[in-house]
């Protein structure tokens, strides 16, 4: 199996060597502005212990889950106006700035085997360009099938076998149906503050669940999405999502 898998890479690299490099497109204003703190470095520090130094890209090649840039990945709970954050409006402009801050493994009550202490946030929270609900689309990160639509949840099972969960989309705006096949980049619904009867802040909670197998034993876990999203966002800014 593995030897077969090498073939596409050989094809790819050999084809690459034949192509003359094109001059790089100059950086856009948004690319110049974009900065991000390291994976696992949670801000503020009291918000929890991330997976420091884990720079592995768990879902390589995915599309960024929000259709358009800019988007701001940072804590909802510990950000300005959040439950444990500084007093102020959730729409404070400081919440809508770079750098990005990882918030996978941020303090939560529920079990998460990959977080130190065994508990934490199973995904990351992402703010849209502006503090307006029902304006920005969440999109499919990979070709796949919609396996579930709940009150505030949309689940996409990608061809890779990974399951991507999108929380807090505006229910009436959801454009897909259970069982529908979607392509990478297809619109799913509008980012909102929907959490059933309880409202949350305007953001997309995005997580990646996959089965990992080591030495014949397997389990299903939420893997760190931050590095995959930094990579995807850079491609989005480059105009090559």
């Amino acid at each position: 199996m593995r030897t077969l898998l090498i073939i596409p890479f050989i094809l790819f690299f050999s084809a690459c060597t034949q192509e003359q490099p094109k001059p790089n497109k100059p950086l856009t204003e948004e690319e110049k502005k974009f900065t991000f703190s390291p994976a696992g470095q949670l801000v503020p520090a009291k918000s929890g212990q991330g997976r420091n130094g884990d720079n592995y890209i768990y879902a390589p090649g995915i599309r960024f889950p929000i259709e358009s840039a800019p988007a701001y990945l940072n804590s909802q709970v510990y950000g300005i106006g959040g439950l444990y954050g500084a007093r102020g409006s959730l729409c404070n402009e400081k919440n809508y700035q770079y750098p990005w801050h990882d918030n996978y493994c941020e303090k939560r009550r529920w079990g998460m085997p990959l977080c130190s202490g065994g508990k934490g946030h199973q995904g990351v929270d992402i703010r849209t360009a502006t503090c307006e609900k029902n304006k920005y689309y969440a999109v499919a990160v990979e070709d796949g099938i919609i396996t579930y639509i709940g009150k505030y949840t949309v689940k996409l099972r990608g061809k890779s076998g990974r399951t991507y969960r999108y929380l807090h989309l505006d229910s009436p705006s959801v454009l897909v149906k259970k069982g529908e096949k979607v392509n990478r980049g297809d619109r799913l619904g509008l980012v909102s503050n929907n959490m059933g009867s309880t409202k949350t802040s305007i953001h997309l909670h995005f997580d990646i669940k996959e089965t990992i197998k080591i030495n014949g034993k397997s389990t299903k876990v939420y893997v760190p999405p931050y590095t995959s999203l930094v990579d995807a966002y850079k491609r989005l800014l480059r105009g090559n999502p």
Binding site: Y56, P113, I212, I214, K217, T219
Partner: peptide, 22 residues
């Protein structure tokens, strides 16, 4: 239920320990 798995992780030793503890 799902039969698909991924084998790549950042640190096999760490993940082995996690799998044991679940």
């Amino acid at each position: 239920g799902d039969r698909t798995y991924q084998e790549s992780v950042s640190n096999k030793q760490e993940f082995k320990a996690i799998l044991k503890a679940i």
